[in-house]
């Protein structure tokens, strides 16, 4: 069933001098099991949008339907929604508070009212998924490195075993290796459990490799909502709103202009290499 957003508007500080419309008439359908990237410039409304998906923000107008049920209707179980729609905030390591990593990860499932052994089982499984060293489980979260803290915090959400996982800039401030590790693990988790994953980022490069659908936000509106290749076709428009297509898009476009009959729709480096090699092989045979 998934999530459906209908003509959603959100205004910050309504009725004051600081009033600002963060979302304007957003309509989206998020079916189960999709891997989606939400991309937008700073202040484009992407973080505001995702906070509506688990009911942390209440829309000024419009509807959010979870499995067909309006989450703003009376008697709707918000706590259950939040356990089904897991939201990992930006810099999630700042939410760690317990005396050791394992207990901190237990916090989420414990709040769901699960029995103690199930809580522990889930925490262990979530920690394993993030690839955090087992010897760190009993350490204070504040003694970990930045990347390790990030993993522990993500595990805190994974332990609730949500069916929709939203990550707001999960790789901000991480080195390239840490970034790739975390994104790879998320992709593996998505493939294995068939959960919905929504990845919020401002880097096309990061997102292009993993997602099957990209939603581009600009000034509170949905600008594009399509397959990555189709979105990147608009690379000139993307640049105008402060974004960019992945570097391979530019390379392929340049090659195309030079008269190479390459497919400009490729989105990852691997596909581009394949495409260029294909041309080189056929091209050299033509020349020979």
């Amino acid at each position: 069933m998934g999530i459906e957003i209908q003509s959603l508007n959100y205004i910050y500080n309504a009725g004051t001098a600081f009033e600002k419309q963060a979302l304007k008439d957003v309509n989206l359908k998020i079916p189960d099991g999709q891997f989606i990237g939400i991309i937008g410039h700073t202040g484009s409304g992407k973080s505001t949008l995702i906070q509506h998906l688990n009911g942390l923000l209440k829309a000024t107008s419009g509807k959010v339907l979870y499995n067909g049920e309006n989450i703003y209707s009376e008697g709707f179980d918000m706590k259950k929604l939040r356990s089904n729609v897991g939201l990992v905030f930006q810099y999630p390591e700042y939410q760690l508070f317990e005396t050791d990593v394992f207990t901190d990860v237990c916090y989420g499932p414990k709040n769901l009212g699960l029995p103690a052994d199930e809580v522990k089982r889930r925490a262990a499984r979530a920690l394993k998924l993030t690839g955090l060293d087992e010897e760190l489980y009993k350490k204070s979260p504040f003694d970990l490195s930045g990347g390790q803290k990030r993993r522990a915090a993500i595990a805190g959400i994974l332990a609730m075993e949500p069916s929709v996982l939203i990550l707001d800039e999960p790789t901000a401030g991480l080195d390239p290796k840490g970034r790739d590790d975390i994104l790879d693990q998320i992709a593996a988790l998505q493939a294995e459990r068939k959960i919905t994953v929504i990845l919020v980022s401002h880097s096309m490069e990061d997102v292009a490799r993993y997602v099957q659908r990209i939603i581009v936000m600009n000034r509170g509106k949905v600008m594009y909502d399509d397959k990555p290749a189709n979105v990147f076709k608009h690379f000139r428009e993307l640049e105008r709103v402060g974004l960019s297509a992945p570097q391979v898009t530019y390379l392929m476009q340049e090659l195309h202009l030079k008269g190479w009959p390459v497919d400009t729709d490729v989105t990852t480096v691997e596909e581009a290499v394949e495409e260029i090699l294909k041309y080189c092989r056929t091209g050299s045979s033509v020349h020979a």
């Binding site: 906070q51 688990n54 942390l56 939040r82 939410q95 916090y107 989420g108 709040n111 959400i157």
Partner: peptide, 8 residues
């Protein structure tokens, strides 16, 4: 909000 997302 982050803790509410964890069911707080």
């Amino acid at each position: 909000k982050a803790q509410m997302a964890r069911g707080a």
